[in-house]
Simulated assay, not measured.
Amino acid sequence: MPELDLTVSSADLTRVICDIPSVSDDETTLADAIHAAVSLLPHLDVVRDGDTIVARTNLGRAQRVVIAGHIDTVPINDNLPTRDVVENGEDLIWGRGTVDMKAGVAVQLKLAAELADPRVDITWMWYDHEEVSSDENGLGRLAENHPDLFAGDFAILGEPSNGQVEGGCNGTLRAVVRTHGRRSHSARAWIGDNAIHRAAPILQRLADHIPPEVEVEGLVYREGLNAVRISGGVAGNVIPDLCEVEVNYRFAPSRSTDDAVAIVREVFAGFEVEIVDIAGGARPGLDAPLAREFVAAVGAEPRPKYGWTDVARFSALGVPAVNYGPGDPLLAHHDEERVPVAQIDAVEKGLRAWLSGS
């Protein structure tokens, strides 16, 4: 098992944990290393649930902050091991997971080791299966098995935000829109009914759709409705009798999941629609006293979070939550993921100052 030295810099720790592959379903090696490292820290009480590790201070402070980060990544595509690169005079770390979101996890591990006497109690969470279906998410499992661990006055997710504070998040819905036809030999196509051809109006409706921008508590969230996968066909000489278009809808946090389902069904009225995955968004939560204090302390500019993140889980529990981490969200899942070392250092400095009160 690889060992983690939590005394090195957050940038060095980023390199180390990125070079421990942890694609969703394969997080155990990294989880083992994190568990071993934080279990050595006397000021933390540690709980493990599968490949999710929770470490808590219990100092009797008046307030508790939950700080979380996922340890899994999307699949590797010739972008490990990490390497150091320089772009426009800026030092960066390149490789899978550097942006989404192991640089944020590295900062958290570093601070978890060093902040033995913070001004608030802290619950650190490092969890598995964020990059896959929401029903597999380690935080969801943890909430079922240990709901008491989610107690807090404020939560921070270390998702990439360019070192700024991104409030709330859009919700996400996946649906499969189907067309049906009748098989026949392709040499006698008039005998059949081509289901793939019948899917053309689905694609046209998507092409014609203009995603709205929705203001929620002063932040403007941009929605999106897109085809992300299409499948159909039987053989090279057969007219297909089934075509499926998978659609992803990113909806503003002011909409409920029922609202989102109704909108998708309305757009694709007349077609068979199956909702296969849905997770509600989270309102910004920036009006909470701790949130305002945090934003002021780190000197960040609040922005909306377009992608879904686990701030939604905390928001559903009544805990206001924001995203704050190094890395450009536009490079999340990109094969050229890379994070500026300066951003890693800045996020560490901001969190350290706020949590220590210095």
Rank of each mutant, 00 (worst) to 15 (best):
Y127V: 01
G167R: 05
L40I: 03
A288K: 06
E215W: 09
E114P: 05
L351P: 13
D345K: 06
A279S: 10
V99R: 02
D328K: 14
A262P: 10
M125K: 03
R48D: 04
E272M: 00
V264F: 06
G236K: 11
P21Y: 06
L30N: 07
A11C: 05
A279K: 05
A55R: 05
G350H: 05
G97H: 04
A200Y: 07
L59Q: 10
V38K: 09
V228I: 14
V295T: 07
D287C: 02
D84Q: 15
G307V: 09
G327C: 07
R352S: 06
R313I: 11
D51L: 07
A269N: 13
S161D: 06
T98M: 03
V245C: 01
I275H: 02
D345C: 04
L173A: 00
E266Q: 12
K305C: 09
H129D: 04
A252L: 04
T29G: 02
L157N: 06
R182P: 00
G158P: 09
A151L: 14
L139H: 10
S39T: 13
I71W: 00
L157T: 05
Y127C: 04
G325T: 06
V176D: 12
D25N: 10
E136C: 14
Q63I: 11
I34H: 02
L157R: 01
V261N: 05
V85P: 11
Q164K: 03
V311M: 02
R250N: 09
A262S: 13
D241N: 10
I20Q: 03
G168Q: 00
D135V: 14
T29R: 14
H333M: 08
I71F: 03
S231T: 14
E3M: 13
T57C: 10
A31L: 09
R313N: 09
L41H: 01
D91H: 13
T123Y: 02
N194G: 10
I67D: 04
M101K: 04
Q63E: 14
D135S: 15
V264Q: 07
V99F: 03
V85L: 12
V54N: 04
V247A: 02
V341N: 01
T29E: 13
L331M: 10
L111T: 04
V234I: 15
S39L: 12
R255V: 05
N323R: 08
G307L: 01
R265F: 05
I239K: 11
S134H: 13
L30P: 03
V132Y: 09
H43D: 07
A321F: 02
S10K: 03
R205K: 15
L290C: 05
G140Q: 10
I202A: 00
